[in-house]
Design a protein around this nucleic acid. Sequence first.
DNA 1: ATAAATAGGTTTACAATATAAACCATTTTA
DNA 2: TAAAATGGTTTATATTGTAAACCTATTTAT
Lengths: 95, 95
Amino acid sequence: MSEFKPLDPLLHSQLRLAVMSLLIAVEEAEFTFLKEKTESTAGNLSVQLDKLEKAGYISIEKSFRGKRPLTTCKITSKGLQAFEDYVENLKKYIQ
Amino acid sequence: MSEFKPLDPLLHSQLRLAVMSLLIAVEEAEFTFLKEKTESTAGNLSVQLDKLEKAGYISIEKSFRGKRPLTTCKITSKGLQAFEDYVENLKKYIQ
DNA sequence: ATAAATAGGTTTACAATATAAACCATTTTA
DNA sequence: TAAAATGGTTTATATTGTAAACCTATTTAT
């Protein structure tokens, strides 16, 4: 697409885009925080976080808070760049 | 999604969004024009135009130019409204 | 002490979507 | 008149998105 540049399919997804949007704002977020803010199911969120991590767009750290598992996510510089590029491209679709 | 409102799945698709974007600009476009501008295959475009028409977002008129079939598309007021809503919602994802 | 509920997820099965390949009818060109 | 081009549609396949089912451990209720 000449004037319509391809939209990164990893970001052109409602839930993944919402996650990235949140991570840009807070720079570090727990799984449960993302789940609440996006109103997604845990299963769906888990899958989408995996994809973002595999793309190198976020990093995921697994630890414990007290005795409970804790999953923490951060956006990477690659992820930030991808997001910015995505937004730039998207703008040409929506004026 | 509370702060992230659902994105109309009919519009949250690269090719359909590009088509709508074009139709907003020109207000009437031929199949081949859309095909060239979006750099899509005819098959894919045909399918996506059908979906937009079934949603009532565009109207499709079939006629002949000389002896050749001619498919012409227009955006409807419903389509325009849906596009505007989509953009409004999308903005909250991308700041 | 034990059962039930909650927390914090992951895995998996299925439905929906996107896409290109194959196809079709007609027309034009060689 | 055979081959190529036009203007698409249909269909098969691959990819994706999503929720249901599941899992392990912890906390609460009885």
